[in-house]
Amino acid sequence: MTTTITVIGGPTALLELGGLRILTDPTFDPPGDHPAGPLTLTKTTGPALSPADVGPVDLVLLSHDQHPDNLDGLGRQMMSAAPLTLSTPEAAARIGVTPLHPWQHHDVGRVRVTAVPALHGPPGCEPVVGQVTGFVLTGDGLPTVYISGDNASLEYVELIAGRFPVVDIALLFGGAVRTPMIDGRLTLNATEMMIAARLLKARQVVPLHVEGWTHFTEDRTDVHAAFSEAGLDHLLVSFTPGRPVSLGSARSGAR
């Protein structure tokens, strides 16, 4: 069974894995301003596909619910129609999704979803930005997939790599996000994405969360430049938003 990914925009992608249609961080609103506490975040690019274009999904993996660049109005509607959404305990308390603490797992068909640590900014940022989670997807005969969520910590990436020594596909959220609320980046920059790929020994990398909002300070061009300078540009999956791309199968010994 072929694994495919369709990048929709921002952090949103449709992953077809093990017979499941899995949606990451649903964002489907058109361009415009989005209130986020004391800030207003401005979306500049709409999604490549509408919710109707995507159709039904089996599972939503939500890194966090509190920021509109990871979950917006139409994304919430899309999520509410899905039979299962996995996210943080804070998100579960607010919006009624199924919570996973770090290293807990939930089996959906052939796919085991394990929540993994993530930190949405520099150390100590949690009281301001709230909880965020990443995910690792595994299953017999399936590629191992890491979905970083809005993680800015390479230390956590190294910890995850120690638990999952085989990572076939890494969906890395980047953009080097900055806001006035935090002194430091809230997500990985392009060089850190490259380092994360090395730590994970990833065979394929799909950069997400690198376009479409004014508070993103880097884009896909920066990602390609960082990977090319390191001689790792062959790891980057080439895609056109809205069009599915086939990904690799599991490496020998992957579980």
Rank of each mutant, 00 (worst) to 15 (best):
Q77N: 12
Q77C: 11
Q77R: 14
Q77D: 14
Q77K: 11
M78F: 15
S80T: 11
S80L: 14
S80I: 09
A81K: 13
A81T: 12
A81L: 13
A82R: 06
A82F: 05
A82P: 02
A82Y: 04
P83F: 08
P83T: 06
L84A: 06
L84P: 01
T85I: 09
T85D: 00
L86N: 02
L86M: 06
S87E: 03
S87R: 07
S87I: 03
S87L: 05
S87C: 03
T88M: 06
T88H: 03
P89H: 10
E90H: 12
A91F: 03
A91P: 01
A91W: 00
A91E: 03
A92Q: 00
A92N: 02
A92F: 04
A92I: 01
A92W: 07
A93M: 12
A93H: 11
A93E: 14
A93T: 08
A93W: 04
R94H: 13
I95F: 02
I95E: 13
I95C: 13
V97Y: 01
T98W: 06
T98K: 05
T98F: 08
T98N: 04
P99K: 01
P99N: 05
P99Y: 01
L100R: 01
L100E: 00
L100K: 04
P102C: 08
P102N: 13
P102K: 09
P102W: 11
P102R: 07
W103I: 12
W103H: 14
Q104T: 05
Q104Y: 04
H105G: 13
H106D: 05
H106M: 05
H106Q: 14
H106K: 08
D107V: 11
D107M: 13
D107Y: 02
V108W: 02
V108L: 05
V108Q: 03
V108K: 03
G109D: 10
G109S: 10
G109P: 08
R110M: 15
R110P: 07
R110Y: 09
V111A: 04
V113F: 03
T114Y: 04
A115W: 00
A115N: 08
A118F: 10
L119Y: 06
L119E: 15
L119D: 03
H120M: 15
H120P: 00
H120E: 14
H120T: 13
G121H: 09
G121R: 08
P123L: 11
P123C: 10
P123N: 14
P123T: 12
G124E: 10
C125L: 12
E126K: 12
P127Q: 12
V128M: 12
V129S: 08
V129K: 02
Q131P: 06
Q131G: 08
Q131H: 14
V132D: 08
T133L: 09
G134R: 06
F135P: 00
F135A: 07
V136Y: 00
V136L: 03
L137V: 11
L137Y: 00
L137E: 01
T138L: 09
T138G: 05
T138Y: 04
G139V: 11
D140T: 14
G141D: 10
G141N: 08
L142S: 04
L142G: 03
L142T: 02
P143F: 06
P143E: 07
P143L: 13
P143I: 14
T144H: 15
T144Y: 01
T144N: 13
